[in-house]
Design a protein around this nucleic acid. Sequence first.
DNA 1: CGTAAACGTGTTATGTTATAACATGATAAT
DNA 2: ATTATCATGTTATAACATAACACGTTTACG
Lengths: 159, 159
Amino acid sequence: MVATHSTSTSALAAQLSTAESLCAQRGKRLTPIRRKVLEILLTEHRSVKAYELLDLIRDVQPGAAPPTVYRALDFLVEEGLVHRLDAINAWAACMDAAGEPHDLLVVCTQCGAVAELSDPALTRILEERVAEAGFSLSEHETELRALCGKCRKRETHAH
Amino acid sequence: MVATHSTSTSALAAQLSTAESLCAQRGKRLTPIRRKVLEILLTEHRSVKAYELLDLIRDVQPGAAPPTVYRALDFLVEEGLVHRLDAINAWAACMDAAGEPHDLLVVCTQCGAVAELSDPALTRILEERVAEAGFSLSEHETELRALCGKCRKRETHAH
DNA sequence: CGTAAACGTGTTATGTTATAACATGATAAT
DNA sequence: ATTATCATGTTATAACATAACACGTTTACG
């Protein structure tokens, strides 16, 4: 069987169950709202804007307001289940929350596609550079602004 | 003589004159508004929010509105004279516009201090990683979220 | 159990950041 | 001189995010 665009249903179940476990281990609660936000992001498998999430949430939670979504997102980011993408003001699920923490996020500034990478050695080098400048790296998640394959072609076509 | 906090007056003049030259070479115009925005950022020598800039601009240009500032900032970023800092929604002058292009910006997420670094070899490595993920780096300016020395201490104190 | 503390959510309002759209004025190219 | 291009003025609104306080639910612990 060929993988579908948004991965199979059981992958989603596994990801949600991983999220549950991680929260439980830490004494945190993956409440229905938080779970739903995470589920949307996992299913879409792309970055989504906060107000777009709000619209989607309202399908199941008609009373939802901006804080509903932002609180859930803040929690999920805190727990490493979601990435916040500053370059495009959007949010994307971590597709592999049980694995190595991601230290590089490649973000297509055109369409919001995201690649999650791990490269501790590279991060160590970045840390050194930062330290030489008298700073200390505060988040081990560095955003790289890029174009995905599709968007690059589109750019090229548009001369 | 010891350097003052915001560098000497003549350094400012030199920076502005560099900016003029670069624009002239490219057939672009460093208009009074653009020049003023750049001057504020060079003088402050720190990152500044757009609406803070707007207030400062209004001292000399009482009719200024948000587009006044955003247009100037967009121009200055385009010309490499100003950096846009996604992590804190702020803007900082490039203190060395005539030199090597900066490929790493270290940003204190607490106070907005910025260090501008150049490390083409490191950037080449980042480019490779990005290419492996099927993307291509679209801006050769990567933001690293960090804490400056002062803010780190402050964090430590506040245990 | 009971009850207090901590946590999560609802709700309203507002703060902050940024752009659209169209009019007007300045500059440059020929 | 005239037209095209660029820059700015002006008004309105879009997009993103948080403050503040009320209320309900869960947890800790006597």
